[in-house]
């Protein structure tokens, strides 16, 4: 497709870069065309503008583009946005809360301080460490608030720390694997999903599965996930306090 006006060719090249970014395991270092496009994105402001607009049209934001690839983030109305039902089928409202909480826990474990969101190093986390981290945080809330039972008949008001503590960390199933509905099973599921998406790489099977959190995960958390969730939470805050 070498014909067409300059504008059309630029749009084609921009769309190609976006398409490459949608395949998070591809690396510019292994693909000359990808590397050229990333280099152009970084050095040519006009081209970058075209790429940003093409992405925007698809409901995507270019969060970062460097030698390790393009990091794209979908807006909630984008056809590329994940639907919770696609994450895991048939979740109850409380299970949705727990799965979301676990993702926040993974990010908070990897990046303990706001400053660590600006670093560029690789962090390490494991299923056992993240599970313990969340359980400790929930335990601290139990110590403060006691175990008095929540109101009956209003499951959507039951606090997340109670929901978390009510689940076992691990449960041996008949075939020896950790049960999927345990908190460890849920953390493992989350880390595996992040690895599928090119945000993590598996390091070893130690600690229930040990993963490296790559830089693009930090970018995704910093530029998008944390900000979005914080906004939603802030908007809901007055209702919650009441």
């Amino acid at each position: 497709m070498s014909r067409g006006t300059t504008v059309a060719r630029e749009a084609g090249a921009a769309a190609q870069l976006v398409a490459l970014g949608l395949q998070p395991r591809l690396r510019p270092a292994a693909d000359g065309a990808y590397l050229d496009l990333v280099t152009r994105y970084r050095s040519d402001a006009a081209f970058r503008d075209v790429v940003d607009h093409v992405a925007d049209g698809l409901g995507l934001t270019v969060l970062d583009a460097d030698a390790s690839g393009v990091v794209l983030a979908p807006r909630t109305d984008s056809p590329f946005a994940l639907r919770l039902g696609d994450y895991r089928a048939n979740l109850s409202v409380n299970e949705r809360l727990l799965h979301g909480l676990i993702h926040v826990g993974i990010a908070a474990y990897c990046y303990p301080t706001p400053a660590s969101l600006l670093d560029d190093d690789v962090r390490v986390c494991s299923v056992a460490a993240v599970e313990r981290f969340l359980r400790d945080a929930a335990e601290r809330l139990r110590e403060r608030h006691g175990d008095d039972d929540p109101d009956a008949g209003q499951p959507e008001l039951e606090q997340a720390w109670r929901l978390y503590l009510r689940r076992q960390a691990v449960r041996e199933t008949a075939d020896g694997r950790a049960g999927v509905s345990t908190t460890s099973g849920m953390v493992k599921y989350a880390l595996e999903r992040l690895a599928d998406q090119g945000f993590m790489t598996k390091l070893s099977d130690a600690e229930g599965g040990t993963y490296r959190a790559l830089h693009r995960y930090r970018v995704e958390v910093r530029e998008l996930a944390a900000v979005e969730a914080w906004r939603v939470l802030a908007a809901a805050a007055p209702a919650r306090e009441g």
């Binding site: 970014g21 949608l22 395949q23 998070p24 995507l60 990091v71 794209l72 983030a73 979908p74 909630t76 984008s78 056809p79 590329f80 946005a81 994940l82 639907r83 919770l84 696609d86 994450y87 409202v93 409380n94 949705r96 809360l97 799965h99 979301g100 909480l101 993702h103 926040v104 993974i106 990010a107 945080a137 929930a138 809330l141 499951p155 959507e156 008001l157 039951e158 606090q159 997340a160 720390w161 978390y164 999903r193 992040l194 998406q197 945000f199 995960y217 995704e220 958390v221 998008l224 996930a225 944390a226 979005e228 969730a229 914080w230 939603v232 939470l233 809901a236 209702a239 919650r240």
Partner: peptide, 26 residues
């Protein structure tokens, strides 16, 4: 989020999850 229930924290937790998992090509 730990202190919230599904009613208060659910939407924020869901927003974080789908943003953290990133773009999923249909």
């Amino acid at each position: 989020l730990l202190r919230a229930g599904a009613a208060g924290g659910g939407p924020a937790a869901a927003a974080f999850l789908s943003a953290a998992v990133g773009a999923v090509p249909p």
